[in-house]
Structure formats: structure tokens, C-alpha cells
């Protein structure tokens, strides 16, 4: 909980020349996921990260989350080097990562339990965030009874209820249908307008990045580096109508052009991801991480 340290004028997140390597489990060779990766995220800023498949977007997010560690360079969150997960950060995962044996309520409470923050106010707090993501009435449902969109709402509530100072979202809407996706983008924009924390948002949808982001970081092919940072100066709130704006279309063309230059050399996008293990972690800590 570093709301006070959030007062300092520096950026919320600084990544300095970060290098992350994985070991391929098959032949024990090294795979460089990120190389000299540098990016700053300001307080209250929404940074969307786009890049070709396997470029290391998720790797960067995991490094900020403290789930994996760079072999060189460093990631600082409000001036402090990341040494592991912390209460100041919360992650929303692409595959929701909900405990199937827990009800919606119990899943939302999970983060607070892990952070040893359950007290008499917890039930009310959990209910408030369930309401915020629009799941009131489904408190007792199991994840298997929910649609993909609803599951991700649970994932979002689980992250928000810990009141993080930094929200990390790893392609959160990639697995939901197009209509739900649009609704959820809208709601996310509204929610973060009230909660106010900076957000790093991984996506492979250019439109989603432009709709949500203050800035878009375009990543190069693996090993991933920042190719270009694109400012999005569109008025908020942005809606479907914003997509008709000439500026939106200009940004979309520009980002697509950047991505087109980074088309994977091999037809990697269609291949099954390689099984890799982040270097310097044991089995309990990082099995089958996605590069």
C-alpha cells in the first residue's frame, strides 16, 4: 500500500533496459523475450501495449507484477525495484484464472485473503466491487456457471477489491466475444475513471488500445523492445462513435503500419507456443509461463 509514495512526482512504473530470458525446456537453449526494454508509466496513465504474438508483452507485465525477474536491467514501481508481487499491484489474467471451486464471492475475496487483509469490512467491500462490475445476484455462482465475459468481471473485481495502486491487465478481453468486449471496454473505462490508478493493458486489438489508452506502446518482434510510443489524444469518454473520428482512423493506420513492419519472420503466430521456464525460478513458481 503505497498511496503516500504515489505522491512523489516520478513515474509510477519505470522499466530500465530490462532483459528477460527463458530456457526452452526441450533443448535447454536460451530464448530472449525482452531486450533493453524501457518504458515509463505516469501516475493515472493508461498505457496499452500492442505487439506481434510472442513479442514479450506478457513477459513485461509479469516482470512488473513480480512473477518473473529480469536477468539485466530493472523494473521500478514508484522508485522501488520490484522484488516480487506486492499489495500495490494487482493482475487481471487473460484466462481469468478463477478458482473453479470457489464461488464468485469467494473468488473476489481471494486476493484479500492472500494479502491477510480479511476483516469485518470485507463482506461489504466484496459486495461493493461485485456490484461495480455488475455481478450482483451471482455471488454464490461457480465460475463454470458464468459466461466468459462474466468470468472476467470476477477477475476484474478480484483485482480491484485489493485497491491496487497499479492495475496490470494481460489481454483481459481477448477470450470474450466482440459484443461483450465492447461493453466491457466501456465499463472498464468508467471504472478506472473513478478508481484512478495507472494501468498497463496488454492487448492485440489495435482498436481496443486506441479506445482505452492514453498512450500505446508498440513492441517489436522478439526479443521485444519498444518500437514506438503513440500518444492518443482523443477526447474521453470514447465510444463506438469515436472510431469514426479521422484522428482515430489515423492512429489505427499508424499502429497497423508499425505492426506490419514487425510481422514475425517465421510463421510463428500460428505455431503452438514453445514450452519455456523463466530462468532462475523453481517449479512451484513458474511452470509453463507464456512468453
Amino acid at each position: 500500500m503505497s498511496t503516500t509514495s504515489g505522491m512523489n512526482r516520478g513515474p509510477a512504473v519505470q522499466a530500465r533496459d530490462v532483459v528477460v530470458e527463458y530456457e526452452r525446456t526441450r533443448d535447454k537453449t536460451t530464448l530472449v523475450a525482452l531486450e533493453d526494454f524501457s518504458l515509463d508509466v505516469a501516475e493515472g496513465e493508461f498505457v496499452a501495449i500492442v505487439g506481434p504474438s510472442g513479442c514479450g508483452k506478457s513477459t513485461f507485465l509479469n516482470a512488473v507484477a513480480g512473477l518473473i525477474f529480469p536477468v539485466a536491467g530493472e523494473v521500478l514501481v514508484r522508485g522501488k525495484t520490484v522484488t516480487g508481487p506486492g499489495r500495490d499491484r494487482a493482475v487481471v489474467f487473460q484466462d481469468y484464472a478463477l478458482m473453479p471451486w470457489r464461488t464468485v464471492e469467494a473468488n473476489v475475496r481471494f486476493g484479500l485473503e492472500m494479502q491477510r487483509r480479511v476483516d469485518k469490512d470485507t463482506p461489504a467491500k466484496v459486495a461493493r466491487y461485485i456490484e461495480m462490475v455488475g455481478l450482483t445476484g451471482f455471488e454464490k455462482a461457480y465460475p463454470r456457471e458464468l459466461s466468459g465475459g462474466m468470468r472476467q468481471r470476477v477477475g476484474l473485481a478480484r483485482a480491484l477489491v485489493t485497491e491496487p495502486d497499479l492495475l496490470l491487465m494481460d489481454e483481459p478481453f481477448a477470450a470474450v466475444d466482440a459484443m461483450t468486449r465492447e461493453i466491457m471496454q466501456d465499463e472498464l473505462a468508467k471504472i478506472v475513471a473513478t478508481t484512478g490508478q495507472p494501468i498497463i493493458f496488454i492487448t492485440h486489438s489495435v482498436d481496443e488500445a486506441i479506445t482505452l489508452g492514453d498512450r500505446i506502446a508498440v513492441i517489436t518482434n522478439r526479443p521485444g523492445r519498444i518500437k514506438e510510443i503513440v500518444e492518443v489524444n482523443l477526447p474521453r469518454p470514447r465510444s463506438r462513435a469515436s472510431r469514426q473520428l479521422p484522428e482515430f482512423q489515423r492512429l489505427r493506420d499508424h499502429v497497423w503500419d508499425l505492426l506490419a513492419e514487425e510481422r514475425p519472420a517465421r510463421a510463428e503466430a500460428g505455431l503452438v507456443p514453445e514450452v519455456t521456464v523463466p530462468l532462475g525460478t523453481d517449479r512451484l513458481d513458474g511452470r509453463g509461463a507464456d512468453v
Binding site: 507484477a65 508481487p85 493482475v91 478458482m99 492472500m114 511452470r287
Partner: peptide, 13 residues
Amino acid sequence: DASLMAAARSFGA
């Protein structure tokens, strides 16, 4: 499930 493990770790488990 590896992703559940990652989720739990992200909350400091």
C-alpha cells in the same frame, strides 16, 4: 493449474 498458481502468487501467496 499454472495460471491459478500465477494468480495466487500475484496476490502474494
